[in-house]
Amino acid sequence: MPILEVSRLSKRFGTAEVLQGISFTLDKGSALAIIGSSGSGKTTLLRCLNFLERPDEGRISVEGALLFDAADPKTQAEKEIRTKRLNFGLVFQAFHLFPQYTVMKNITLARELLEKARRRDTGVIVTQEQVEAEARALLAQMGLSGKEAAYPHELSGGQQQRVAIARALALKPKILCFDEPTSALDPELTGEVLRVVRDLAKQKTTMVIVTHEMAFARDVADHIIFMDEGQIVEEGPPEQVFGAPREERTRQFLARYANEA
């Protein structure tokens, strides 16, 4: 059974139909890359998965459980949406670290608040030491050991983005989403972020990656979706989508990238 099922998802902003009946599935432990030109709806799709946008139509299920159904208001209650969000993690293009907190606190803050609520509701106790130890392990995994006490503005963009990845992982999401994680970075800093994502793929982290890095997508993803004008034009394994695209629009898009590169 797929871990994520998205079915007939649509989203309008005013008269613009940003997503038009998007359906796809994602298997546990696999990495999905979504490619497409700006304005094709890739980011909106990620934002819908993370409930930052409310789809007008369609359904989202995780591990067989229906999380969201546009036709059923009961699935859209604010309080539940908050818990449902935790199925997903999101790494933003512009990091959005909390500037007033240290690297350590950025990673632990949300977890601490959740554990506090859990202690109240279920009596389960996870100590501060445990939370911090896990954060340190994540930082080590990101190659950022020793940066615990630094503030975001003291870090490079690549380091900030890796902290943001650790922050998302700290909540142990079932599916980790990336929204163009290297687009805000200087070219020489993209490598360190891509390396981390590649490692996560090797460890079978379930991921949805919106990216403009074609070589990276081809290399890291098990499955590629090419979107254009709010629709999925073509999808398949990377060898097929990049090696032998069936659709004319895919060919044009990839040719444009090949020329730029």
């Binding site: 670290l97 909390f98 949300a110």
Partner: peptide, 22 residues
Amino acid sequence: PLGQAEAGQVLGMTRSQIFFRV
């Protein structure tokens, strides 16, 4: 920036936690 509140949201924080903590 709106991204600050959104970062809090995707981390499962409540509206008041986002306001007071972020």
